[in-house]
Each structure stands twice: as structure tokens, then as C-alpha cells.
Design a protein around this nucleic acid. Structure first.
Lengths: 339, 339
DNA sequence: CGCTATTACTTAACCGTTTCAGTGACATGA
DNA sequence: TCATGTCACTGAAACGGTTAAGTAATAGCG
């Protein structure tokens, strides 16, 4: 039951392949009589014809595919998302793409090979890159001559479209909120602090706030491991081991906050009674945990849809590079206590 | 900076396109001298040639693409995963595919069109379908003549490969566990009970357990809405409105358990003190919430990787249909109290 | 009426691969 | 010595579309 090809349709309708193509795409500046068009459409229906996008891509050099590269957060870990943030982002992007006749090609990033490969082999029309990567990897993208959108990537001189938030400000907001609530000994808990990554900026915001309040930043208050629930759980113990002088913690991602809550719980410590926590991202589960997490909210879905929109714009000839800094806000929930 | 094509490589190496192709694929039963092969490889390197997979697909009729269809759980909702289960599944599948030179093409399922489309237009080599769909939609897949793996789909007479768990048994285990802990008035909370879906089976297991214990199944103990945190939160209120006779609840997905915990919390009720809860799936956040969720554990990652493996096997000529029922087990955590 | 435009097509080249069917050159066996 | 086989390669068709260029018929215009 082989699929019908355009040739079959042409034969069935008694016209040439070109005519069929013109009808199906209603190509501008090509006139086709209504009767012929009708005949073609009828043949299409009869043969249950669907165009082969591969063939179309080959000749039109458009694949209607958008590549999405997501960091393999823990090296050596098998799975893509240790952070639900990515799932949220991905699902909104998928929807936006599908609405516009595009599909998403997914790739974890073991190295720059992964995205160079989907770009060059697969010929995706555009590529969305999430997270921080070594600058020289990103430079290679330049050779690609397809629209590139960087999400949550700080580069000195962005030649690509970019979407992000003011992570530094967010870090400051979170920390200032804690300070405002009377905390002066505040931990910073995060995964890897990558160069040019969001965590680095959030960390800077943390320092900004402390310095602004005349509080000294202490090395012993920094907990950096990997961005996972498990690590954050371990941090709770580490805190005690270090003598727990903190009354609060700012964590660079909600999932770390959840781990911390749980870790403390095991040690019979309570949030926010024994430690106040402010998170970051406001992933959907931030409101689900107990206590629910006071966190810096960002519109993750907007990140995904905007990324797709930038690609689409560029593809439709929109000139110039687009940049978007999405707004953030601190949402107060239950994980912070005034002292 | 156009990409080099096989033609350029051929010219550079002073051979024909065919020879280049043979060298690159080291086609069986085609002999090429070592010198020629070396010359070709050198030309490839020099021109930085990467084969165009679209063209390759066109002639070889293999796209090295696996389609993944995930239910758009809430109709009209914009996003793919209201249930973290899908993210977990997807990420493991992506990894397995990538390890084998395949990519995943993602599609939410608004109707059968979505997967028929990726199968026929995009020509994916295989397709993984997650969740329950109307039987007649699935029947259409038959026309596709590509390997199909159904994950978590109950069909009467599976002509496709299938992967699942014994959902009915799981439902029974969960419910019996509650009964064993002294509960006799047990709610069942779920999203949509779709025909042939996992929820229906879990529900049957729930009934099995109750009947086995001589407890009458009461309509008023069934709460069916949609599979979301918000719905489950609302259920808490609904329970009170109905006079809350339940001492325990079995929820068809962990996320519902989390919502229920939270909803009760708002009403100043505690889990497990005021209501014991058993979940299902053991998504990664089941252990993160407070209290952590006693739940029926299944190996979600294995579902994803096995699905990919089945596709791969079929593609490499493995005959016959494969079926796998993955083991489940009840993991005891903190959300159930003995009464 | 003759010339140019316009309409409604068709032809054929092309996109970048794979692969079947040759084709010489040389080696081998009878 | 000659048929036969193997080796190492080439030519060209095919995959299923798009699209530039060409053509025949009709319409419009002075």
C-alpha cells in the first residue's frame, strides 16, 4: 500500500506534475483554471495523497523543522531533564511550532556535535539553543546560516536572537526579599556555575543584594554541586556539618529548593521555621510542594513560544536580530519567615 | 558558505559519486581499494562534507526519525505535559534514540491527524504512541507499514508492539495496601476514564480490591475530572462537601496525589492524618513532596528506552510483535497511615 | 486585422543521495 | 589460449518534489 506520489496524482488528474504542485501550493503568479484545480484536488482525495516532506525539503531547501537543543544537565546522566523547567519550555515550544506547521527535532547536547549535526545533517530551518555553552561552540553556529535563538545564554556580543530574563536582577530581588525579612546570613545553593550561564548571573545578583545591605559575602555560604533534588538534599546535611549559621537560602532553581526542604525535613528541621528559602523559575511544582515555594517567577511558556516566534519571523524574512528580556516577579508563598 | 555535496567530494577525490557513497557507507559487496577510500575520506575532511539526510532519506526511504506522539492531556490546553510522567518518558526515549543515530520527532496529539501526519508526511521510520486513543484511530496506523509501538494503550487484539504495566494489578495493589492498613472507605481520584486507557484498568483494580475485601464500591467515592494538580486540589473541597466519609484515597497519578495533599492542607487537613493517599507512577517528584507519596512504582525510563528498542528491533528485521509488561511495585513512603 | 499580453498549462532541470547494471582490466583455471 | 571470475570502479536512473523557462491558445487593444 505504497503512498501515492505527485506523479500518480498528475496522471489521475490528467495534468503534469508541475500543475499539481502549483495547485497544492497555490503558488503565486501561477494561474490555474478552477476546473483543473478541482480535478487535481479530486485526484488528491481519491488517491489519498500526502506530499512527501523529505522530497519537498530537498528541492525547496526548507524542512519545516526546528531543532531544539537542551543541555544534558548532568554529564553522564542518561536523561534530558533533571530540571522540570525544560519540560515546561519544551511543551510550549512544541505547541507554538505545531500551530505553524513546524515540528520540533529534539536533541540533548553532549557536545556541540549534537546541534551541529541536527543543523547540518537534518537541515533544520532554525535552531533553538537552551542554556550555557562554551563560546567557541556557539561561534560555530555562525557557519550555519540559519536563524539561531539562544535562550538563557549570556554572550558578550550576541549575533543571534536571544531570549532571557534579567537573571542578575532576579537574584537580587530574591536575596533582597530575604534581607527585607530580617535575614543576614543567607546561603546560595546552585548547580554548576557556568561561565555566561544564568546561575552565574543569579549569583551576582545575590552578591549585589548582600553588598547593597552591607553584608559580607562568605565563601562558606555558597553550596555548588549539581542541579538536582538529590544534591540539594545533601546540602541540608552539609549545612549542619558547617555549623549552620544560615537562617535563609536562595536557591538557583526551584528543584533545589524542594530538595532542600526535604533534606532539612529529614533532619527534623522545618521550612520556613528553621530556614527560609527563595527559589527561582517558578516551575509548576513550586506551588505544589509543602511549604509552597516563594520564588522568582518567570514565564517559562513565553520563553518557549517566543523562541519559536523568533525563528518563524526570521524565516519569513524579518530582518535584524531580535532580543527579548521577559519580565520577572517575586511571588510570595510559604517558604520565607520574617525574623 | 554552502555545504559541500557528494558531487563536490567526488570531484575533489577524482572519483564518481557512487564511489563516494560506497566508501562512506561501506556498502557490503562493494569493493573499493584502500587508496581510493583514503582519497575520498581526505576529500570529505577537506571539504567538511556532511551527508544530507533529507536526500538520503528520499532515496533510501529511511529517515532515521522516530515519531513520538504524546496525548494533549487537557483538550484546549496549550501544553504537552500536564503530567511529569511524559517528561520522564520522553527524556529516556530521546537518549536511547540518539545513542542509535536516531532523532525524535515530537508531536502532541490533537487528533489522529497529528500522528498520521508525521508518519506520512515526514516519513518517520517508526512511531511511538503514548496513551489511549479511540480504536478506530489506531486502526488507521495499520496502513502505515512502519513499526508502531503502543505505550500504555490497551487494545483488544494488539497487532502492534506494546509496552505497559499491569495497571489493573497496580490499582489492586494500591487499594489492598490501604485496606491492609485498616481503611474501608477509600476514594478513587482520577482524570478522564478513557476507554482502554490505563486509568480504566487502575479503576478496575480498585474495584477488585474492594470487592475482594467485601467492601461495596460507592459512586460517591469516585472523583473523576482531569489529570491536573488543580483538579485534585478542588477534589479536597468536593470531599468535604460530600461529607468526607473517606479515610483514604487512591489516585490514578502522583500529580493528583500532590494536588490532593495541597488541597487538604488548605482546609487544614493533613495527610496522612486525615486522609491516607496512595499514588501511581512514582514520578520523580513523588519523593519530593511532603509527605512523600506512597505510590505504585513503575520504571518510566524503561518504558521509554524499551519503546525505542522495539522500534529499532523491528527496523533491523526482527520479525514478530513484541510485548512487554514491565514490573511494578508498591513503594511505601509517608502518605499512608494505619488506622 | 495584426501585434502584444495574458492565461493555462507543460517540459525539463534540479535538489543530494542510493543503487542497479554495466564495463574494462587483470587474474585464474582447464 | 580462451572462457570465466573477481576487482574496482563508473553511468545513469530513481526517490518525490519545486521551479524556471517555454508554448499554445485566447483576449485585448489601437
Amino acid at each position: 500500500m505504497k503512498n501515492a506520489s505527485i506523479k500518480d496524482v498528475a496522471k489521475e488528474a490528467g495534468v503534469s506534475k508541475a500543475t499539481v504542485s502549483y495547485v497544492l501550493n497555490d503558488t503565486p503568479h501561477q494561474s490555474i483554471s478552477e476546473e483543473t484545480a478541482a480535478r487535481v484536488r479530486e485526484a488528491v482525495k481519491k488517491l489519498d495523497y500526502v506530499p512527501n516532506l523529505n522530497a519537498r525539503s530537498l528541492s525547496s531547501r526548507k524542512t519545516k523543522l526546528i531543532g531544539v537543543v537542551i543541555p544534558q544537565t548532568e554529564p553522564g546522566r542518561e536523561f534530558l531533564f533533571s530540571n522540570p523547567f525544560y519540560g515546561d519550555l519544551l511543551s510550549s515550544a512544541e505547541y507554538a511550532a505545531r500551530r505553524n506547521g513546524y515540528h520540533l527535532l529534539l536533541s540533548g547536547s553532549e557536545s556541540n556535535q549534537s546541534y551541529m549535526s541536527i543543523a547540518r545533517n537534518r537541515g533544520v530551518d532554525g535552531i533553538i539553543i537552551v542554556g550555557a555553552y562554551p563560546t567557541k561552540w556557539l561561534d560555530e553556529l555562525h557557519e550555519l546560516s540559519i536563524p539561531v535563538v539562544l535562550v538563557d545564554t549570556y554572550v558578550k556580543d550576541p549575533v543571534y536572537h536571544t531570549i532571557g530574563i534579567n537573571d542578575r536582577l532576579g537574584g537580587r530581588m530574591a536575596t533582597e526579599y530575604l534581607i527585607k525579612n530580617g535575614h543576614r546570613s543567607i546561603a546560595f545553593v546552585c548547580g554548576q556555575i557556568e561561565d555566561q550561564g544564568v546561575v552565574q548571573k543569579r549569583y551576582q545578583g545575590y552578591r549585589d543584594a548582600l553588598e547593597g545591605a552591607g553584608i559580607k559575602v562568605k565563601e562558606e555560604h555558597i553550596y555548588s554541586g549539581n542541579i538536582s533534588f538529590e544534591y540539594a538534599q545533601a546540602v541540608a546535611q552539609e549545612m549542619l556539618k558547617r555549623g549552620k549559621k544560615e537562617t535563609a537560602a536562595f536557591v538557583s532553581a526551584d528543584i533545589l529548593g524542594m530538595g532542600l526542604i526535604k533534606g532539612l525535613r529529614r533532619l527534623n528541621l522545618r521550612v520556613p521555621r528553621d530556614l527560609s528559602i527563595v527559589g527561582f523559575d517558578d516551575v509548576y511544582l513550586a506551588k505544589m510542594c509543602d511549604p509552597s515555594l516563594t520564588t522568582v517567577h518567570q514565564d517559562i511558556a513565553a520563553k518557549g513560544t517566543t523562541a519559536v516566534q523568533f525563528i518563524l519571523d526570521a524565516l519569513s524574512g524579518e530582518p535584524g536580530k531580535q532580543e527579548k528580556i521577559l519580565p520577572i516577579e517575586l511571588v510570595e508563598r510559604e517558604s520565607v519567615q520574617k525574623i
